[in-house]
Computed example of a mutant assay.
Amino acid sequence: MACWLVKSEPSECSIDDFVAAPDRTIPWDGVRNYQARNFMAQMAVGDAVMVYHSSCQHIGVAGIVRVVRAAYPDPTQFNSESPYHDPKSTPEKPRWQAVDLQFERKLPAVIPLQTIKAAPALSDFPLVRRGMRLSVMPVTQAQWQAILALG
């Protein structure tokens, strides 16, 4: 089992949105960064995923979800009315991926970015590097345990 972190503004998709969703499942779509897309393509059913809230009052890790459907062509790329539409993408040659994620648990409190940055065990974690803007990134088992220990 691999571990991942996905970032989203809570106004776009929050851990609470997973709780409210039918079957507590949400397609993670709209990712338009090639490296993040490549990471999504590596996600497998059963992988654990941290949901990270960004650009909000309480920035940090808010909960845990699981991959319940591995990478498939992101349908928003084909929808001309979607903000994620990509006119260069076709059903025969899709450029973007989506995965389905399902709620597992909400953390008792958001683990703040500042707390994550201050943890020596996480000094090499990509999230704490200046300018790191990927919305999907791998998390090692050691990093996963270190982050959860902060909560």
Rank of each mutant, 00 (worst) to 15 (best):
V67F: 00
R133M: 04
T25D: 00
R105W: 00
H85I: 02
E104G: 02
L101C: 07
F78S: 06
D29N: 14
V61F: 02
S123V: 11
I64N: 07
P120Y: 07
W96P: 13
P75V: 03
I147S: 04
D16P: 01
S8G: 03
D23Q: 13
P83T: 07
G63L: 06
F39Y: 15
S135K: 05
S80A: 14
A119F: 04
Q42L: 13
A70L: 03
C13M: 14
A149P: 02
D86F: 07
Q57K: 14
K117W: 02
V6P: 05
A44S: 10
D47Y: 00
T140Y: 04
K117N: 03
Q141I: 05
K117G: 01
V110A: 06
Q143K: 01
T76C: 03
L122H: 06
R66H: 15
V65T: 06
L148M: 11
A36T: 11
R95A: 13
Q77G: 01
Q114L: 08
K7C: 11
A98G: 07
V45E: 01
K88R: 12
D47M: 00
D74V: 02
P22Q: 14
D74F: 06
P126H: 06
L127N: 05
V6S: 03
W96T: 11
Q42F: 01
K117F: 05
P83V: 12
E9N: 14
A41R: 15
P73L: 10
P22M: 08
I64P: 09
A36L: 13
Q114S: 14
T140I: 08
D100V: 01
S80T: 11
